[in-house]
Design a protein around this nucleic acid. Structure first.
Lengths: 110, 110
DNA sequence: AAAATACTGAAGTATCCACTTGACAATTTG
DNA sequence: CAAATTGTCAAGTGGATACTTCAGTATTTT
């Protein structure tokens, strides 16, 4: 029927959970540590760790461990891919409308 | 922590499932009946009915029953909301780049 | 009217998934 | 060094969920 796309799969699965979207929300504001996220969310640090793993695999979040603290921040790759998916899945007549804006944006880039 | 948004919740949950994304995929090409979807997907019509309910609640698909056949097609409202969410959740420096394109697109609409 | 088609509804099942607890490792602080 | 902080790993649990089957309803076809 169609080629399966594991990246998109992980992406939507990642954002399908309210807690993970809350994390993305928070990180969009400013980078934070796992413990802070846990306190803010009212869940265990373990749970946050699991969520971070999923978000990282989806390309939505990137983390870096310095010393004993893991700092998490937004990674735009996932968002780019997501936006691309939406674009690819609009119906043709909708795409036609978008093309105008795209062309205008393109002409600005150079 | 943040106001919950049940619409976005339903939206991401709906697209979190591969089968439902396949349905969206197919309907993006052309409207179809539930039975055809079921055959194509290799699942029961009942299963398709359940998926359609979820997709409809999310505003991604609209269905209409004429006679005994339910015809399903893409509904753009969900896609619009989804794209809006992505826009709202990009980091500020990314937003800054987008603003150009947005302004250009806006000036074209009138 | 009888048979076939297209779907709907209730109920069950098996798997997945978000979260927990508890034990441990690594780093920082007193 | 001892104590506190920050995070990781393994295993378990309860609830959601993607399916199914079976029974029924409405519509179309013959």
């Amino acid at each position: 029927m169609k080629k399966k796309d594991p990246a998109i799969d992980r992406l939507f699965h990642a954002l399908g959970d309210p807690t993970r979207r809350a994390i993305v929300d928070r990180l969009g504001h400013a980078p934070t540590s796992a413990t802070r996220l846990a306190e803010w969310l009212g869940v265990t640090v373990t749970a946050v760790g699991q969520h971070l793993q999923i978000l990282e695999d989806a390309g939505l979040v990137s983390t870096e461990k310095l010393g004993r603290v893991r700092t998490c921040s937004i990674h735009h790759a996932g968002f780019d891919r997501l936006e691309q998916w939406i674009r690819d899945h609009r119906t043709s007549w909708e795409r036609r409308l978008e093309r105008l804006a795209d062309l205008l944006a393109e002409s600005d880039k150079d």
